[in-house]
């Protein structure tokens, strides 16, 4: 064997698909989710009757995690750049109100959806410009946006609930609450977004640039990566997912108040981080966002099924975040 074929052999050895997967956090989170399902199927019984492993409960889980998961996809893109978006819950609330208000004022479904999506994009644009072009800290900018959007939602809604959705009400409700081939629409959207981000991260320059910025922003700048534009696009994308999630959840619930999305940012960030996105930047996957949000919902649902006081949910999710991050630290130290 000559030199180059040897090095090629070593190359393919150390970079085999299986190896890469086993080394990744999403793999271990998937294992954890499966184990958790198994444990819950054993314990999740009431009077000997299975309550966890039922189609009803599973579609319940799927619905609950998809609204969070949709935004976790956008959040992952932002976290990969070493950024953060704390405003997603509020942006979702404001977008939901915009959609509700537009529909209840008698406009059609297209106008209603456009109102929600455009509102979210406007928030993302402001976040992105302040962070990328003005150079303000993502934490501070999006914290400000969190406050602004929640307040605007109160102002615009005048603290009213919207539940009459105009001439296209049935269509609107069926978009958010309907199913495709037996799969809830919000779950379909979540899966499509996962595939979309997975594709973008792995096969486009935009994806490489997100990782490059999170890894070493000054290196990315010096090598000619359009850093500002790429960062702006990440915040736009993140807000867009918040807008999409808002439209879906309002249709599913059939009503919207200005409290929509309150504290969702915590669950969204938890999902992304548990799925392996690294707040230090440069690391994160679309599948990670998916499996992370599934695991968070499984923990929530499992505790509920096990009859644990819901007040404990935050404690368990919090412990899991810390555990996942600690595990990642230990593994990366071991592999050098």
């Amino acid at each position: 064997m000559n030199d180059t074929s040897l090095s090629k052999a070593i190359d393919s050895q150390t970079h085999s698909f299986g190896q890469e997967i086993i080394r990744s956090q999403p793999f271990w989170v998937t294992i954890a989710a499966i184990v958790l399902c198994f444990v819950l199927s054993l314990t999740g019984t009431t009077n000997g009757e299975q309550v966890f492993f039922t189609p009803e409960n599973f579609s319940n889980i799927a619905l609950n995690f998809s609204f969070i998961g949709i935004i976790a996809i956008g959040m992952t893109a932002v976290i990969i750049t070493a950024g953060i978006d704390l405003s997603v819950g509020s942006v979702m609330g404001l977008a939901g109100i915009a959609t509700g208000l537009t529909l209840s004022s008698g406009y059609g479904v297209e106008a209603g959806i456009a109102a929600g999506i455009l509102t979210a994009l406007a928030c993302g644009l402001v976040n992105g410009i302040l962070i990328s072009y003005i150079g303000l800290s993502p934490f501070v900018v999006t914290l400000g946006m969190l406050s602004i959007c929640r307040s605007l939602a109160l102002v615009v809604s005048n603290n009213k609930m919207f539940y009459e959705f105009g001439p296209d009400e049935d269509l609107f409700l069926s978009i958010g609450g309907g199913t495709h081939l037996g799969v809830a629409n919000s779950l379909v959207v979540m899966l499509v977004l996962t595939i979309f981000l997975g594709f973008m991260l792995n096969f486009t320059a935009w994806g490489r640039h997100l990782y490059a910025i999170g890894s070493n922003e000054s290196a990315a700048t010096m090598t000619g990566v359009p850093v500002k534009a790429v960062k702006l696009s990440a915040y736009l994308f993140c807000s867009l997912t918040a807008g999409i999630s808002a439209v879906m959840i309002v249709g599913w619930m059939g009503s919207v108040t200005n409290a929509l999305g309150m504290t969702y940012e915590l669950r969204v960030i938890a999902s992304a981080v548990i799925g392996g996105a690294d707040l230090m930047g440069g690391v994160g996957t679309a599948y990670g966002a998916l499996i992370g949000s599934i695991l968070v919902e499984l923990i929530r649902n499992g505790l509920l099924m096990a009859g644990v006081d819901p007040y404990w949910q935050g404690t368990f999710v919090g412990l899991f975040i810390i555990f996942a991050v600690a595990l990642e630290k230990i593994r990366s130290r071991r592999s050098g």
Partner: peptide, 12 residues
């Protein structure tokens, strides 16, 4: 240019 700090991205 080869920069002094090399301008490399560790995760790529």
């Amino acid at each position: 240019v080869v920069y002094q700090d090399l301008a490399l991205c560790d995760h790529l």
